[in-house]
């Protein structure tokens, strides 16, 4: 049996209580959300926390609710299944249910949480790209109070975030999508189910009133750089011209050139570049189609 080593255990029922414990234990304590990553790394011996602070008993941390005038707030402890099934999110940000449906598998999505995914800061996160194109902000709470970080600021390196000691991710705010917008997330793994992305691409297109030029576009990539990244040069390519198929083809090429992929057991760097080119093209075309209909 693959077992966990003993640890000290806390089950706070309020956020201030959780932060107090995390602060008192100074880095030796790990917050537990869904556990699908933390418990795996503990079993593998990659990390050896002396203390676990289970956040699941804190009421309200898993809520998904509308914030009038601002967007939709997703609690850090909301599971990906709850996010995928959320009627509210299906209407406000349809790309999310589409993206989440390719994240791991149903039984993992029933456990894994949005906050845990961001806190893990995996370069191959399936959630980070869609959060980036949607302009999400991450709320953190720590001993010094609350603050918000943009998705462009939250990751500081592979597996590390810009959070301060004893700070916990409490929620994410997704601004409402503009009208005439479309978005898509596409990924390729070595097999269809239950695999890490060897490259993932999220793309958003917002039309201006005339539906010829793009008013806004965002492209975000995972698994092709030390942290999930925006393809800002490719975005510029789209915004500087007419929104034609040729322009999208060019932007996809630019995206494949501005990444810094590694060769590893999943894929070679050159294959990742090729995959990014193809997926960026497809994701932009899908987003464009939706924006036209929206």
């Amino acid at each position: 049996m693959n077992r966990l080593k003993p640890f000290a255990y806390f089950e706070p029922t309020t956020l201030p209580e959780a932060i107090e414990i995390l602060a008192a234990k100074k880095g030796a304590a790990f917050p537990l959300a869904g556990g699908t990553d933390l418990l795996v790394r503990m079993k593998r011996g990659v990390i050896k926390p002396s203390t676990i602070v289970n956040l699941k008993r804190i009421e309200g941390l898993d809520q998904i609710k509308k914030e009038p005038g601002r967007g939709v707030r997703i609690g850090a402890l909301a599971t990906f299944s709850a996010i995928e099934d959320s009627h509210l999110l299906r209407l406000s940000h349809p790309v999310i249910a589409q993206a989440v449906s390719v994240l791991a598998c149903p039984s993992i999505r029933n456990l894994a949480t949005m906050g845990g995914n961001i806190g893990r800061a995996s370069p191959a996160s399936d959630a980070a790209p869609f959060l980036m194109i949607l302009g999400a902000t991450v709320s953190l709470k720590g001993p010094q109070g609350e603050r918000e970080l943009g998705m462009g600021e939250i990751f500081s390196g592979p597996g590390t975030t810009a959070s301060r000691p004893a700070e916990a991710i409490t929620s994410l705010l997704l601004p409402d999508m503009a009208s005439h917008s479309g978005a898509a997330y596409l990924k390729i793994g070595r097999r269809e189910g239950m695999d890490c992305a060897l490259a993932g691409v999220a793309a958003l297109v917002t039309f201006s009133g005339g539906k010829r030029e793009a008013e806004d576009t965002k492209i975000a990539l995972s698994a092709v750089a030390p942290v999930p990244m925006r393809a800002k040069k490719a975005e510029k390519t789209i915004l500087s011209g007419r929104l034609t198929e040729k322009c999208i083809r060019e932007a996809a090429k630019v995206a494949s050139e501005e990444i810094s992929p590694v060769s590893d057991m999943r894929a070679s760097a050159s294959y990742r570049r090729e995959v990014v080119r193809v997926l960026t093209y497809r994701a932009l075309m899908t987003a464009l189609q939706q924006a036209r209909e929206g």
């Binding site: 693959n2 699908t36 418990l39 289970n54 299944s81 029933n110 456990l111």
Partner: peptide
């Protein structure tokens, strides 16, 4: 709902 019982305390 299905969950992986090896990853649930």
């Amino acid at each position: 709902r299905p969950v992986n019982s090896c990853l649930m305390l």
